[in-house]
């Protein structure tokens, strides 16, 4: 769209149509290269997800989803229900623990914390720790929960580790969504003489819930997909299903890892990968939808 201007002017400035033509050609090539970059950026996710769907669809059925691992070695036949159940249970415990803490924390930072410096330091710590590799969380969970507190490799230990991973993500989401609520609502509410408690409950949370829910979905999606933190805090190769806080569980990502690394069954691995991806896609799509519907929070 800038071509026309560039054309007339750069011809005059350089005074030579040859240099002008060369630079215009270079510009075209450059733009073509950028389109190519964009194309690759689009092709990669489509190709990877398309490949997993096409290859995996053959192995996925209702029975695959709801049956227990069978065959010999175990896992070559049957389904993955205990892994689905385990992953859901772990994520629920994580969310149940992390969400109240993050809601309170975000509320404090956005509504109560008066000291700019305090808020900034907390935010700095949280943002730095939010991006710590998940294997480190696993390491801590193993040393602190499994060994030191003697929880053993169990649902509760894994759930707490996932809670710790979710906490910073949720906290940032809550704070940002609350902060994006128009300041006028606060001033109006407070000038009407209501308490902050009332203001938070009846106005701010109602305005910010979309962003908060989007944050929850992102955090849960992240937690469900990561294998490193539950590898040695919660997961076992096989379980007969049934959940108990003090018992280990199977999870989708670790099950996929075991199937591949022990070369048990690639057919089953394709099915497991598809279930995992499909679940997360639905999660992420709903987060995107919620955000588009008008939450203030952007990751």
């Amino acid at each position: 769209m800038h071509d026309a201007a560039a054309k007339s002017l750069s011809a005059n400035v350089t005074g030579s149509s040859e240099t002008y033509r060369a630079s215009l050609l270079r510009d075209r090539l450059w733009r073509a290269a950028l389109w190519f970059c964009g194309f690759i950026g689009f092709l990669l996710p489509v190709a990877i997800i398309g490949y997993l769907i096409i290859e995996g669809l053959r192995f996925v059925s209702w029975q695959f989803l709801t049956d227990y691992p069978k065959g010999s070695p175990l896992g070559t036949e049957g389904g993955i229900w205990p892994a689905v159940e385990g992953s859901l249970a772990l994520a629920s415990i994580g969310l149940l623990v992390a969400f109240p803490l993050a809601l309170g924390g975000g509320l404090y930072l956005s509504e109560y914390g008066r000291s700019q410096r305090f808020n900034k330091i907390v935010r700095f710590l949280v943002e730095c720790l939010a991006a710590v590799p998940s294997i480190i969380f696993g390491l801590f969970g193993y040393a602190f929960l499994v060994v030191f507190l003697k929880f053993g490799i169990s649902l509760i230990a894994g759930g707490l580790v996932l809670a710790l991973i979710m906490f910073p993500i949720l906290l940032i989401a809550v704070q940002e969504s609350l902060r994006s609520v128009d300041e006028a609502y606060r001033e109006m509410g407070l000038s009407l003489g209501v308490t902050r408690f009332y203001l938070v409950r009846r106005v701010l949370l109602r305005k910010a819930w979309r962003g908060i829910v989007a944050g929850i979905v992102l955090a849960v999606g992240h937690a469900v997909g990561s294998a490193a933190p539950v590898l040695f805090t919660a997961s076992v190769y096989f379980s007969k299903g049934g959940l108990g806080l003090d018992r280990p569980v199977m999870t989708l990502p670790t099950h996929l890892y075991n199937l591949v690394s022990e070369a048990i069954s690639f057919d089953q691995a394709f099915g497991t990968a598809l279930i995992l991806i499909a679940g997360l896609l639905i999660f992420n799509a709903s987060a995107m939808l919620l955000r588009r519907l008008g939450g203030g929070f952007t990751q």
Binding site: G41, F42, L44, P45, V46, I48, I49, Y51, L52, G221, V224, G225, S226, A227, A228, P253, T254, L256, Y257, V260, A269, A273, L276, I277, L280, L281, N284, M288
Partner: peptide, 17 residues
């Protein structure tokens, strides 16, 4: 959204892929 999809694929699935 395509890039977000790419970021949302779990590491273990990348490994498998």
């Amino acid at each position: 959204p395509a890039l977000e999809l790419l970021a949302g694929i779990p590491a273990v699935v990348y490994g498998f892929f």
